[in-house]
Design a protein around this nucleic acid. Structure first.
Length: 278
DNA sequence: TTCCAGGCTATGT
DNA sequence: ACATAGCATGGA
């Protein structure tokens, strides 16, 4: 156990496997930032958590501690996973850059819309578009909840056109309409392949976006999404052999098995931190 | 100005 | 089954 619950505050003691910067800036989530006190915060669904770094622990202050124990995946031992993944020599050299990364247990519905927006886009603009999308979400204490399926389905196409999302606006509207009569909790009971096929049947979702949604929204850690950054990691650090993105995905999923998605985050964070100075 | 960003759809072969 | 043009927008 790496955490304790005290007066609705989660105290995480093992900082080698919990680092708010690594967790939030490794590209898996978009509704986060640093508040005026210099503390990281993250919004998920209709919940918000603020993370305060102390000398001996990180304190997670939120409206819903149970939600965030699950959200931050606090019952999983990431040091054990790191040891396993370190058998790959190339990856073992990159893990220290993002040693406190954890895969967040995000909301499936929120991940679907977030990652439709993410296609052929950059993270800063993705965040701006999602922020605008959330303006129709319920007002909470200092933030907006992510809009529900009904709120998104009831919004007219003009709303989506006002987001600055470009050609993705119609994908968002079509997906909102398609999801209106679907219970995602029932979808969750299906096999990974069945969920994948359901996801790519939605407009604006292809192999990469579906893999992200499976990993971050359906907690399928054996998925390894391949985007432009991962393609570069592959050619810069693993092989010069020309491969398609689906082939690169297979290559890494075969290498990292049930921890593929976690390996992917270390690689993504390493490559992106190396090439973007803030 | 051109290129690129967590790619997908549509339309060829 | 695989290859590629076109796609909205904004920042470098």
């Amino acid at each position: 156990m790496i955490y304790k619950l005290e007066n609705d505050i989660i105290k995480v003691f093992d900082k080698t496997q919990f680092n708010p910067k690594h967790i939030l800036e490794c590209g898996q989530v978009f509704r986060f930032g640093i508040d005026k006190n210099g503390n990281y915060f993250v919004i998920s669904k209709d919940n918000k958590a603020t993370i305060i770094e102390k000398d001996d622990c990180c304190e997670i202050i939120s409206n819903n501690p149970d939600y965030f124990v699950n959200y931050f995946d606090l019952n999983t031992d990431y040091n054990e996973i790191k040891t396993t993944l370190s058998k790959n020599v190339t990856l073992s050299k990159m893990i220290p850059f993002g040693e406190g990364i954890r895969i967040l247990n995000g909301d499936a519905h929120e991940m679907i819309f977030s990652y439709i927006i993410s296609q052929n886009n950059n993270i800063k603009r993705i965040q701006k578009i999602i922020d605008k999308l959330c303006e129709i979400g319920i007002k909470k204490d200092g933030f907006n909840a992510f809009p529900t399926i009904d709120e998104l389905a009831n919004a007219p196409i003009e709303f989506y056109q006002s987001l600055g999302a470009g050609y993705r606006d119609k994908f968002l509207k079509q997906t909102a309409d398609a999801l209106k009569n679907i219970n995602l909790e029932e979808i969750k009971q299906k096999s990974t392949d069945e969920i994948y096929n359901f996801l790519i049947s939605l407009q604006g979702i292809g192999p990469k976006v579906a893999s992200c949604i499976l990993l971050f929204g359906f907690q399928k850690k054996d998925k390894f999404p391949v985007d432009t950054w991962i393609e570069q990691v592959y050619y810069n650090h693993f092989s010069n052999k020309k491969m398609s993105r689906p082939e690169i995905q297979k290559y890494f999923e075969n290498e990292f098995k049930e921890y593929s998605g976690i390996a992917q985050q270390y690689l993504f964070y390493f490559e992106r931190e190396r090439k973007t100075k803030e």
